[in-house]
Design a protein around this nucleic acid. Structure first.
Ligand code: MG
Ligand code: MG
Length: 1111
RNA sequence: GUCGGGAGCGU
DNA sequence: ATTACTATTGACGCTCCCGAC
């Protein structure tokens, strides 16, 4: 081993007691993964593992780094108010006074050059600062400090941990080489080994002889916890009745070892309920169970003894990671509440730092909501891996309860025990055993989930990229990760970074306040719940050409658009000029892109390295000889790099970020819109039919069925687009054989992929439809899926409609017969606040159900998904108070307490029909009314399309599906007067069938067969079109009730309701926009040369592009 | 139709 | 000597449902 020769064994004097832990040169090699800062003392406790050579195993270890010093950068003013020059001595003088006033006794300073590129106006790009160094033992300088000789003081609030990590360039969990580590006299932690370092510079990331960081990391001890509680209503406390743990002693997180192959230990502790003895036969049943499953089941009399047992086991196992489903939102707070109430000794063994004082706990029974910051701090030294939080971050699911995740991720059925009835399990021994096993099983499930979702490797990767705390990555703090990444990078480049703003107003807060003052009368900034009103405009979404496409659509998509824009245009804090001195009022102006020759900014370079590293990793992954473990490691790396690059943009626009830079975010989205629009325009010039596009993608309808031609068209556009940019790249993302495009962000398509062997594989891709949303029940999903499958199939359109109708009749009968299980009727909705915080709870089913659950003693918090079923209640209290009153929890319905029945008609009307109607809206041959009838519903509520379809949506209909004769049968023919014979005849288009069944082409009079004069045609056509447009805008409305003959142009105040007394009909346009569209389309077709050519495969004798002339 | 409230998909 | 404290939210764009008026 090569060591730095500056510090060698001579420096290490003590260590005889820890000889087995130190290296031969006396240094300590330590893999750290968590830290705790002691702000006032300027010390940081690093937690991690060291190798114990005595018994060849790793032990937990803490290194307390002391004497971390504050660094404050003082920016001198150019001139004093009296115009005199200011020297650093003047600044020093004023600073001395300020220090005395603030009680700072010892400090040092020296001039230092630093750069600045952030949002505080008036700070020069580069300047000589007075760098002030002093101990954290001394008081902090006030935030936003300034004086007569200096304008700013940076870094006054920076804590020791951030300072240490940034200065030492420590990027997440890694091996550290610690010199001069001393064994600490007093044990401050529960770690097996403990050291002190009195100089932070003694801690450095360990590099091997080649200057690389070692790849291997120590195995971790992972403990999964699961609790069972009973709500004591008198004391309003969740009391613990059982606790289970599953410990994996030797987890190599970089290897994909499934949980089955891990070395595991299990134990469970269960106690009596109050002072009632266990049910008869329980001890015998336990003995049997222990033998059968070879597990430890500890029986305790009281909650207090149960907790003592648990804490003791935790201490012995000394886990590095604690796993639990909703551990941070429930178990942790409950444990702390109970240990405090029962005065449990050594409660702080839950974490690894010894404590004298209790943190402030959450109000309430315990486990009511996410743990407080201080509560989480108790855990320091042990990482908390909350599978509930992680799952929310990593996957989309209908619900994030353990049941659902076990089923979808692990393919394991978990029994749904109703925790509000937990006490009843104490009635007999079988039930109690069952409950104990269930508790233990949950510990297993949540560990399994952790392994399956690869939570530890992924979060570690992200942490290593950003250089923050692993424990923070695990709680999901995305913005903070990004801050650390930038903090590290800008510090390396000798920039002064923006300070974290606490109470004081940040740039963003000031801005927000200004806005509020300006238009106070306007609507509040928050549109709904926590979601704010947008601060600037985002991606461009093209108006879709709605309809069904039965030939190939090509999807092209820019590869990570926003990161690429940052690189392409060199967008960075350091490059974009944005302190607009000229124009004060127009704050919303998008800044200009930096000049071409400007040196590459920090941000673009950062992104570039991320992208390049990802490319390398993906290259490595192509190696077929890779083992499973290596493949997994590479894939995690690749994912982490992508996530990190992509999150950069979002954080620029985040108003609470330290690196908030709205102008940069605005510039990026502005360029994004510009790029997409340019792409659309370019496609237009290539005669490609762009049917849709969203932010970074466009879809082109090829009107081709042959893959080769389709590819050719896609590649043509791809080539032409990519010529325009240096780095930015568009790529073909897929080919859709059929596609149903309903609305912006809502479509389904048949994706065709070519396998390496040339075989074509079709998969259905569904975006945004009700099908993919959890707030529609499975019944709705199932029916929609079937209908969608029919629509996307290659069947004749008529057959499709027939099939759909038949299926709907069949399924509605099935539903009415009660053949559907209850599960199919469950609707899931998330709570975005605590249930009692809803102002209008009465009209919201999920809130109603949540409140009822809470009343039953269940924990329901903000962020939980609430399942409910809409029932038909026989004796509704006077006045139908809305459907929310009829919402019940599925368990209540199952138990049949109040004889609840699913409200079949409600489901058919509200859950099945609307999504189906939306899916079928572009499909000819059916409509909402018809679909309703098939479902056995009252179809008359829906306007018949034959009468009027005033919805305003026009659909692309397929030339191949409908003959022109059919489509244009209701259109008025074009009447043209001939200059030669002066007769007015009906002109049937430039290609037409004459009476003797022969084809006739060209612009000639039907009577005298002389050529028609083009300007006359133009005038007559214009007049005709105008008359139709006028007819449309006259806006005659008719009632759709056949018995009512109301025809009016007056728009009712009741919207579409018919104004005639007693009439229940709805008003709709007599002449609809669809009719107008079809009419104009007819004229266009009648005179379109290309279409006529295609249609009749002939050669017209008059060869001019008539269409262009006329329009 | 408007406003308000509530869902959560999309990029 | 002890204690308290923030406060923890990536962005924007686009439907869809309920209710009152
Ligand atoms: Mg993309
Ligand atoms: Mg895309």
């Amino acid at each position: 081993m090569v060591t730095s020769d500056l510090f060698d064994a001579t420096e290490v004097k003590e260590g005889s007691t820890t000889m087995e832990l130190l290296e031969t040169d006396g240094s300590l090699r330590f893999w750290w993964y968590d830290a705790y800062e002691h702000r006032e003392r300027g010390s940081v406790y690093l937690f991690g593992k060291v190798f114990n050579k005595d018994n060849n195993s790793y032990v937990s270890c803490c290194v307390a780094v002391q004497n971390i010093e504050r660094n404050v950068f003082i920016l001198p003013r150019n001139q004093a108010s009296n115009g005199e020059e200011i020297g650093l001595e003047d600044v020093y003088g004023e600073l001395s006074d300020i220090c005395t006033k603030n009680g700072i006794k010892k400090w040092a300073s020296k001039p230092t050059t630093r750069k600045y590129a952030f949002e505080i106006p008036g700070v020069p790009q580069e300047a000589e600062y007075l760098k002030m160094v002093y101990s954290y033992n001394e008081p902090a300088l006030p935030a936003n400090l300034s004086g007569s000789t200096f304008s700013h003081a940076f870094g006054t609030q920076t804590g020791p941990l951030e300072h240490f990590l940034v200065k030492r360039d420590i990027m997440g969990p890694c091996w550290l080489e610690i010199k001069n580590a001393k064994t600490s006299g007093s044990k401050e932690t529960w770690c097996k080994a403990e050291f002190l370092v009195n100089n932070p510079k003694m801690c450095n990331p360990y590099r091997d002889a080649n200057g690389n960081a070692p790849k291997e990391i120590p195995p971790l001890v992972i403990m999964s916890l699961s609790l069972r509680t009973v709500l004591n209503k008198q004391k309003n406390a969740n009391e613990i009745v059982a606790a289970s743990a599953l410990v994996c002693k030797n987890v190599k997180i970089d290897e994909p070892t499934p949980i089955q192959n891990q070395v595991k230990i299990r134990f469970t502790a269960v106690r009596q309920l109050s002072n009632t003895p266990f049910p008869p036969g329980f001890q015998d049943a336990l003995a049997k169970e222990r033998k059968l499953n070879n597990t430890t089941i500890q029986v305790e009399r009281t909650e207090s003894s149960l907790l003592n047992y648990l804490i003791a086991r935790i201490h012995v196992c000394d886990p590095d990671v604690i796993v639990g489903h909703n551990f941070a939102g429930f178990d942790l707070d409950v444990l702390l509440h109970r240990m405090k109430a029962l005065n449990t000794q050594h409660w702080h063994k839950l974490g690894r730092l010894k404590r004298k004082n209790w943190p402030k706990l959450q109000a309430g029974a315990g486990g009511a909501r996410e743990s407080t910051y201080q509560e989480k701090m108790v855990m320091c030294g042990r990482l908390v891996c909350d599978t509930y939080l992680a799952a929310k971050d990593l996957i989309r699911s209908k619900s994030y309860r353990l049941n659902e995740l076990a089923k979808s991720q692990l393919k394991i059925e978990r029994e749904d025990i109703e925790f509000d009835k937990l006490a009843s399990y104490y009635n007999n021994s079988e039930d109690l055993i069952h409950m104990v096993k269930h508790c233990s099983f949950d510990a297993f499930l949540s560990s399994s989930l952790m392994f399956k979702l690869q939570i530890l490797p992924l979060t570690r990767q992200l942490t290593n990229l950003a250089g923050n705390l692993w424990a923070r990555t695990m709680t999901g703090a995305r913005a903070e990760r990004n801050e650390f990444l930038l903090l590290h990078e800008f510090h390396r480049q000798k920039y002064i970074c923006p300070d974290k703003s606490f109470g004081i107003k940040s740039q963003a807060a000031v801005e927000a306040l200004d806005l509020d003052d300006d238009d106070n009368a306007e609507k509040p900034k928050t549109k709904s719940k926590g979601r704010r009103k947008p601060a600037y405009s985002g991606g461009l979404v093209l108006e879709p050409k709605k309809g069904f496409y039965d030939k190939y659509v090509v999807l092209l998509d820019f590869n990570s658009l926003y990161p690429s824009i940052i690189q392409e245009y060199n967008i960075c804090f350091t490059t974009v000029q944005r302190h607009d001195a000229s124009d004060e009022p127009e704050e919303e102006k998008v800044p200009d892109i930096p000049e071409q020759g400007m040196t590459q900014g920090v941000l673009p370079r950062l992104i570039k390295t991320l992208v390049e590293r990802r490319r390398q990793v993906k290259q490595l992954m192509k190696n077929p000889k890779l083992g499973e473990a290596e493949m997994m490691q590479l894939d995690i790396r690749q994912k982490g790099l992508k996530l990190t690059a992509n999150s950069m943009y979002g954080c620029l626009g985040f108003s609470h970020s330290r690196f908030y830079a709205k102008p940069l975010a605005m510039l990026i989205t502005h360029k994004g819109r510009e790029i997409l629009q340019n792409t659309v325009d370019l496609a237009g010039t290539l005669d490609l039919n762009v049917i849709y596009g969203d932010t970074d993608s466009i879809m082109v309808y090829t009107n081709e069925s042959e893959m080769d031609k389709v590819k050719e068209m896609g590649n043509l556009l791809k080539r032409r687009v990519n010529q325009l940019y240096n780095l930015l790249e568009i790529d073909i993302d897929g080919f859709f054989k059929h596609m149903l495009l309903l609305k912006k962000k809502k479509y389904a398509a048949l994706l065709v992929e070519e396998k390496p062997n040339g075989e074509l594989v079709e998969t259905v891709e569904t975006k945004g439809l009700d099908l993919v949303r959890r707030d529609w029940c499975d019944l709705s999903h199932d029916v929609s899926n079937r209908v969608l499958a029919a629509i996307l199939s290659k069947l004749d359109r008529e057959e499709v409609v027939e099939q759909i109708h038949a299926y709907l009749r069949e399924v509605s009968a099935e539903i009415r017969n009660g053949e559907m299980p209850l599960d199919k009727f469950i609707i899931n909705k998330q709570l975005t606040k605590s249930p009692e915080e809803y102002a209008d709870a009465k009209s919201q089913p999920h809130v109603q159900v949540a409140l009822r659950m809470r009343e039953a003693g269940l924990s329901v918090n903000s962020g939980d998904t609430v399942p409910y079923v809409i029932c038909s209640v026989e004796n509704m209290p006077s006045g139908s108070r809305g459907f929310a009153e009829r919402a019940y929890h599925p368990n209540d319905v199952k138990n049949g307490e109040k004889q609840l029945g699913k409200n079949i008609e409600w489901y058919l009307n509200q859950q099945v029909h609307p999504p189906i109607a939306r899916l079928c809206s572009p499909i000819d041959g059916t409509d909402a009314a018809h679909l309703a009838e098939c479902l056995g519903l009252d179809g008359s509520k829906f306007t018949h399309v034959s009468m009027a379809n005033g919805d305003g949506d026009t659909y692309v209909t397929l030339e191949s599906q409908i003959s022109d004769a059919e489509r244009f049968k209701d259109c008025d023919r074009l009447e043209l007067q001939c200059r030669h014979c002066n007769t007015k005849t009906t002109f049937d288009g430039i290609g037409r069938l004459t009476a003797d069944d022969t084809m006739e082409y060209g612009l000639s009079c039907m009577q005298c067969h002389q050529d028609l004069f083009i300007p006359t045609i133009r005038i007559q056509l214009t007049l005709a079109i105008r008359s139709f447009i006028r007819r449309y805008y006259e806006g005659w409305l008719i009632c759709d009730d056949p018995t009512c003959s109301n025809r009016t142009r007056a728009m009712s105040v009741f919207g579409r309701r018919c104004a005639v007394n007693g009439c229940q009909g709805a008003m709709s346009r007599e002449y609809t926009d669809k009719q107008l569209y079809t009419q104009i389309l007819y004229y266009s077709h009648a005179l379109d040369l290309d279409l006529t050519k295609k249609k009749y495969m002939g050669t017209p004798h008059s060869g001019k592009n008539i269409k262009k002339d006329l329009w």
